[in-house]
Write a protein that binds this DNA or RNA. Structure first.
Length: 511
RNA sequence: GUCAAUGUAGCUCAGUUGGUUAGAGCACGACAUUCAUAUCGUCGCGGUCGGCGGUUCAAAUCCGCCCAUUGACACCA
């Protein structure tokens, strides 16, 4: 079973910011999860490289656009390496393969009679790459976002007949699962109900782009170009890529995970384009929220932008992953608070999970000759086993509906409950009487087993921490057995050796 | 301006079809313990559930109005 998941193709005007990291981490976690459940995952990311903005950025730097794009796209690649991102495809829209796909796609859309030449005029912001409707609001004709002077444009553009697909798009977005979260879905429905207008898909005098076949001086508008990156990414053949090949190899995408700002392109324009080309639409478009910092919007003008590289070097990827995935509900805006960050990492990862592993392993080593004790005496009291089973169930349910925060919280609850179980049973008191040894061995087996499951469940969310836990439990993770199977209770092998415990995660300190 | 969403303890949030003293985690305070990473645990502090009015035997939960915040309103990777 194949599963196709995409991040947006990030614009190469700058190196990755925290938002790009956030989106990509979510996708990475989902991709890891799907792989573990046996799916044949194609995890796509990449960069969007064309457009006037890039052309000018390069010019200002005194380099060719391609050079600039090579540079930034290498930075992206390095970033994903640093963050342990497990993408399968990294697509560049300046690649030859992509160009083939765009042109073929264009021809299909053209054949559907959905392309015509029109005139677009108005005030244009190069920063936004868009026409502004009411520049009258600003007498200076400046873009409200970029504070740049708008440029008057009066040019012929190719248009795509979006209006033709009004009813089909309405039908599509009516499907509750297509757009998520549902709050965003209503916005889109509202928008579409007002009537769809055709939109332009080409620009004149933008040399840095894919040229429109047979029409001089026209290049494709970045959106038309970039969205197709998802399709060209799937194509395998560098020499002879084709839409059909991409379809055979996995299209359509199961989920486009994007920021809420670009939801409309993915949920309305993109499906219409695909329908026009006779292709399947993506199964789901999920718009996540934005990140703020200490309650404030992050922005260059405010000077409060959080640099992901600093975050990474200072706290490590596991900590950042945990905070972003566990503490922020997918689809809602999230706030990055330094104090909360430190508190959560220390409490959840170090105190609750790390210490559980540590105390459990120590007891076992101390009383059972550095080994996992026997579980022969199966007492009727198997509350922990029941709880673990319930946890695994809930975890799958949440992950399947992309509730990563809830999935993470469910793991945490299992760890908390295991700690409670220990405090209740008090094996350190029982062990003082020799006749209790079978009982103690059963208790210790249970907590070790529960801890093993905590570690296994962490695998898609915190892969490194998960494998550290596995190491301390004696490397039980078995590549030859399915992950789901390994989550069954009772897989911990008794008599196996437990290495000396070491903190699996360092505590963080306030600045 | 129009439409929509949100507004529950210091912070992040749960609160199912309205029903006993409104919950969790973190933070804070006290106690206790040692198997453990000054850790786990127990107890406590802390909320007129944005405001006003209404429906009801009963509302955080339904209705109306108001306030605040956020988002969408056509091409902002």
């Amino acid at each position: 079973m194949s599963f196709v998941i995409t991040t947006p193709l990030y614009y190469v005007n700058d190196k990755p910011h925290l938002g790009s990291i956030y989106t990509t981490l979510i996708c990475d976690s989902i991709a890891r999860y799907k792989r573990l459940t046996g799916a044949d995952v194609i995890f796509i990311t990449g960069v969007d490289e064309h457009g006037l903005k890039i052309q000018r950025t390069a010019k200002n730097k005194g380099v060719e656009p391609q050079f600039h794009c090579d540079e930034i796209s290498d930075i992206f690649k390095q970033n994903w390496k640093d963050w342990d991102i497990t993408h399968n495809k990294f697509v560049r829209t300046s690649s030859k393969k992509h160009e083939y796909i765009v042109k073929e796609f264009y021809n299909r859309v053209k054949k559907s009679d959905d392309i015509y030449m029109g005139v677009q005029k108005g005030w244009y912001c190069v920063g936004c790459e868009e026409f502004k409707d009411n520049p009258d609001n600003s007498p200076t004709h400046k873009c409200p976002i970029h504070q740049k002077t708008l440029e008057w444009k009066n040019e012929e553009n190719l248009f795509f007949k979006l209006s033709k697909y009004q009813s089909q798009i309405e039908e599509l977005i009516k499907e509750p699962k297509f757009i998520q979260p549902k709050e965003r879905r209503n916005e889109i429905i509202n928008f579409v109900s007002k009537g769809l207008k055709d939109f332009s898909i080409s620009r004149t005098n933008v040399s840095w782009g894919i040229s429109v076949p047979d029409i001089d001086n026209h290049t494709f508008y970045v959106w038309f170009d970039a969205l197709l990156g998802y399709v060209s990414a799937i194509s395998l053949d560098m020499n002879q890529p084709s839409l059909d090949e991409s379809i055979d190899n996995g299209w359509p995408a199961d989920i486009h995970l994007i920021g809420k700002d670009i939801l409309r392109f993915h949920a309305v324009y993109w499906p219409a384009m695909l329908i026009s080309a006779g292709m399947k639409v993506p199964k789901k478009v999920y718009g996540h929220g934005f990140l703020t910092r200490e309650g404030q919007k992050m922005g260059k003008s405010l000077g409060n932008v959080l640099d992901p590289e600093i975050l990474l070097s200072k706290y490590g990827k596991e900590a950042v992953r945990w905070y972003l995935l566990k503490d922020i509900t997918l689809g809602q805006d999230g706030d990055f608070q330094n104090k909360r960050f430190v508190d959560i990492i220390n409490n959840d990862l170090a105190n609750t999970i790390g210490n559980l592993l540590n105390r459990t392993s120590s007891m076992s080593r101390k009383w059972f000759d550095n080994r996992v004790p026997s579980n022969e005496l199966l007492s009727k009291d198997n509350t922990l086993e029941l709880y673990a089973k319930k946890t695994v169930e809930n975890y799958f349910r949440h992950f399947n509906s992309y509730e990563l925060d809830l999935a993470a919280n469910v793991i945490l609850s299992l760890a908390i409950n295991t700690n409670l179980y220990l405090n209740e049973k008090q094996p350190w008191t029982l062990i003082k009487d020799e006749k209790n040894i079978p009982l103690v061995s059963n208790i210790i087996y249970n907590v070790l087993e529960s801890t093993r499951i905590v570690g296994l469940l962490l695998l898609p969310i915190l892969p490194n921490l998960s494998s550290k836990i596995d190491q301390q439990l004696g490397l039980l993770y078995n590549e030859n057995e399915s992950w789901k199977k390994q989550l069954d209770w009772g897989k911990l092998i008794h008599e196996s050796i437990l290495p000396a415990p070491n903190p699996v995660i360092e505590k963080l300190e306030y600045e």
